[in-house]
Design a protein around this nucleic acid. Structure first.
Lengths: 239, 239
DNA sequence: ATTATTTTGTGTGATAACGTACCGATCTTT
DNA sequence: AAAGATCGGTACGTTATCACACAAAATAAT
C-alpha cells in the first residue's frame, strides 16, 4: 500500500514527476518529528535524509561558550541531510526539530538507489542545497549589520511561512536562543512589535496579526532569501 | 601540449588520480586573476568555474545600504562556481578577487563533460561545497557572538593559509569592508595585535609575525572550520 | 621637491545590546 | 485552591561598536 503523492506536503517531493515519485515512494518512511528531536547531531553519523512535511527544523551552530546560533530554518519546502547528498555522513551543523511535525525519512544507504529511481530528485535536492546556502549566507550579513528587531521580524516571517497557522509556539526564551541574543532583548523587541499591532503573544505562543506590516518591518534579508527560493525551486516549491 | 598535474597548485585538481587529471586537462584554461575582478556577479549568469591557483577570492553578500559582508574566502584549496555544480547559473553571492593571482578556468558548458572525464571530480567538488557551507555557517555564529578583534584574527589566519608568504596586501579600509565594520575599529584592533607583537603593518601591508600567537588569539571558528576542511578534503586538500 | 592622495591614529559622544537581577503574571501540578 | 514552575516586563550599570571628525604619517603624482 504505497504512499500517494497527492497527500505529500513536502514541496520537493510534490514537484517530482508522478512516475518518479512512484518509483521513489518505497524508500520513504513516514516519521513523527517531536519537538527537540535531533535529526543531525554534530558528533554522530547522519543515517537519513528527512523530507519535512510539517513543523520546522532549526539548523544550529553550537559555540564553545555553550550558546548556539540558528544559521537556517527548514520546513516543508526542504529537507534535512544536505551533507549526505554532498557525500559526507557528518556535519558540524546540528539539526533540531523546533516545531513538532512529521516528515518522510529516506535512509542514507538508499539515497543512491533513490536518485537512480528518480533522476529529477538530484536536481531538486541540489537546488534546495543552493537555496539553503544562500539563506545561510544572507544570515551572515544579517547578523553582522541588522538590529535585533529586524532580525526577529525576519525570523517570524520565515517561521510563519513554514507553519500551518498564524500561531507560533515559541517563548521569548526560545527565540532568544534561536537568534543568539538575551531573552530580555527579545521581550523588548517583541513588545515593540506587539505595541505596533503586528503581533500578539502570551505565554509561549506568538500570533501573527499583520503579515503585511511585518514584511514592511523586516530587513531586506527576508525578501532576498524568498526570491532565491522561488527562483531555484519555483513558485510551488518556495514557501 | 597539455597541462602537467605536477605544476598545478590547486588542491582539488592536485588530488585527482593522474589519469583523470589528464582527461580533464584539455578543459582547463589558465587565467590571470587580477585584484578586484569579479568572477561571479549577482546579476549575471555564471559562465565558468575557477580553480584557484594563487591569490584568494572573497565571497560577498551585498546589502541594500551599500555595505557588503564577507561570507567566505576561497584560495587554492577550492574553486569558485558552486552554484553551477549545484545546477544553477546564478547566485546572489558575489565572488571578487581580493588578492591577485591566477587560476584554471573550466567553462560551465564543459562541466558535464569534465565530470564524465573525471568521476572523482564530482565527489571532490561536492565535498568542497560542503566545506564551504560549513565555513559560511560558522561565520553566521562568529558574526553574531565574537568580538571584532577575534574575527579579525580569524580572517588573518585564513588569508595567511591561502597566501604565499607572511605579507597580506590589505589596508585597514579594505579589511573593514571585508569584515563589515568601521575602518577605525580595524585600526584599533590591528593596533592591539601589533602592540602584542603578533603582526606588523604599514600602509597597505600586514605582516604575520607570530602565527602561533595569532592562533591562540583567534576564536574557535578558525580551528573548527580548518578541521572540517581537513576532514572533507584530507590533509593535503586542506589549506 | 612640492603637492595631492591615501593610509593610519585618535577623540568625542551616541547607541545597541549585554549581564544581571528582581518582580509580577501566567500556567501546571497537586 | 495552593504551591511550584515557567514566562514576560522592566531596570541598572557596563561594554562593544558606531558615526563623525580631524590630524599626522606615508605614499604617489606632478
Amino acid at each position: 500500500m504505497s504512499l500517494e503523492q497527492s497527500v505529500v506536503r513536502n514541496h520537493l517531493l510534490a514537484m517530482l514527476p508522478a512516475q518518479e515519485f512512484q518509483a521513489l515512494a518505497p524508500y520513504l518512511v513516514p516519521v513523527d518529528l517531536p519537538a527537540r528531536q535531533i535529526l543531525q547531531h554534530p558528533s554522530e553519523p547522519i543515517r537519513a535524509l528527512y523530507f519535512v512535511e510539517d513543523g520546522w527544523i532549526s539548523l544550529l551552530m553550537a559555540l564553545q561558550d555553550g550558546s548556539s546560533v540558528d544559521i537556517g530554518i527548514v520546513g516543508r519546502e526542504g529537507m534535512i541531510g544536505t551533507p549526505i547528498l554532498l557525500g559526507s555522513d557528518r556535519s558540524i551543523v546540528e539539526a533540531m526539530v523546533q516545531r513538532a511535525g512529521s516528515g518522510l525519512r529516506l535512509d542514507a544507504q538508499h539515497l543512491q538507489d533513490a536518485l537512480r529511481a528518480s533522476p529529477s530528485l538530484r536536481q531538486l535536492l541540489m537546488h534546495f542545497s543552493l537555496a539553503l546556502m544562500t539563506q545561510v549566507g544572507q544570515m551572515v550579513a544579517c547578523n553582522r549589520r541588522h538590529p535585533i528587531e529586524q532580525r526577529l521580524v525576519c525570523w517570524l516571517l520565515m517561521a510563519h511561512d513554514r507553519g500551518d497557522g498564524d500561531d507560533l509556539p515559541m517563548t521569548h526564551e526560545a527565540l532568544a536562543a534561536t537568534l543568539g541574543v538575551r531573552r530580555a532583548s527579545i521581550s523588548v523587541a517583541a513588545g515593540a512589535l506587539q505595541k505596533a499591532g503586528l503581533i500578539r503573544y502570551a505565554s509561549g505562543r506568538i500570533t501573527i496579526l499583520d503579515r503585511a506590516g511585518l514584511e514592511a518591518a523586516a530587513c531586506e534579508c527576508y525578501s532576498v532569501v524568498c526570491a532565491e527560493y522561488r527562483r531555484l525551486l519555483g513558485n510551488d516549491g518556495a514557501v
